Computed example of a mutant assay.
Amino acid sequence: MWQELIDNIKELLQIYNKLFKLNERKRQAITAIDMLVLDGLVDKERELSDSIMRIEQKRQAILKKMAAGNAAINESSSFKNLLVFCPDNYKKEFVSDNEALSAVVQKTIVISENNRLLMQGALTAVNMNINSLSGVKAAPGYEKNGEQNFSANKRKLDFEV
């Protein structure tokens, strides 16, 4: 079962590496404002996220099987908890794969957050351009009903229209 768990971690590692590379391409699409490419990347990102969920469910099933033979292991056991029970012949591979997974997950989180900030900046720039064209000033926030805040100039524009 330990080899099955290690294989599962390797599978997660591959998916997160793909997700990281996809996020690098996503950053390029955001900076180039290539909405067609960005749309395709978002679809691929959704597929990879679904794969992660599927593999994670598989990992939990493996841990559930392992828990049947060891009461200290459960579906949400951490790496450190599992390491205590890991047989010596699997320990080196288990540790290295977990460390690699942790590193790539952290890198993916960072680049994903950076992409989110880039998108937010791009949307703000688009908002400003639309505002300058229409003569309406939109605040960067939204009201309780989900509509964007506009300045008093909106009423004037509505009246003129």
Rank of each mutant, 00 (worst) to 15 (best):
E147G: 04
K26T: 04
K10C: 01
N129D: 10
Q148P: 09
L36E: 15
L123G: 04
S102I: 05
V110G: 05
N145L: 08
N17D: 03
D43T: 07
L63Q: 03
V126K: 04
N153K: 05
N70M: 08
E93R: 02
N114A: 03
D43L: 06
L48V: 13
V95H: 02
E24N: 10
N131M: 15
D158G: 13
S77A: 09
M128Y: 15
L19W: 06
L157E: 07
P87L: 01
S96L: 14
N98P: 02
V136S: 08
E147N: 11
K21P: 08
N131G: 14
A122T: 12
S77N: 05
N149I: 15
L157S: 07
A125D: 14
V42T: 15
V161F: 06
E45Q: 13
E99D: 09
V37Q: 14
G135P: 05
E11Y: 03
V104S: 00
S49F: 13
D158T: 15
M1P: 06
M53Y: 11
N98I: 00
K154E: 15
E160P: 00
K92W: 04
M119K: 00
A68N: 11
L83P: 00
I73S: 12
L82T: 00
A122L: 13
N74G: 12
K18V: 09
A29H: 08
F79K: 02
K91V: 03
A67D: 02
Q120A: 07
A122R: 12
V126Q: 08
M66G: 02
T31F: 13
A138M: 12
N127A: 12
T108D: 11
S78E: 05
I33S: 15
V95Q: 03
N89S: 01
F159Q: 07
L5W: 00
L83A: 01
S77W: 03
K144E: 09
A152E: 13
L101W: 11
A125G: 09
I55P: 00
R54Y: 14
S151E: 07
V161L: 14
K154Q: 14
A61Y: 02
E147D: 09
Y142M: 10
E24T: 08
K137A: 04
E24S: 08
E45R: 06
K144N: 10
G135Y: 05
N74Q: 14
K10L: 02
T31W: 14
L5P: 00
S49Y: 10
A68D: 07
M35V: 09
G141I: 04
F85T: 03
N23D: 08
K44H: 09
N131H: 10
R27P: 03
N98C: 02
V136M: 09
D7Q: 04
L117A: 07
W2Q: 01
K144T: 07
F159P: 01
M119A: 02
S49V: 12
R59L: 00
G146S: 11
A152K: 10
A67V: 03
I33R: 14
D7M: 02
M1H: 04
L48P: 10
V126P: 06
M119Q: 04
K26G: 02
I30M: 10
N70Q: 11
S96I: 10
T108K: 07
S76I: 15
D158Q: 14
K21T: 11
E47G: 13
S51V: 07
L83Q: 01
V136D: 05
D158E: 13
V110R: 06
N89Y: 00
M128Q: 15
F20W: 03
A32E: 12
N81F: 09
V42N: 09
R46A: 13
V110Y: 06
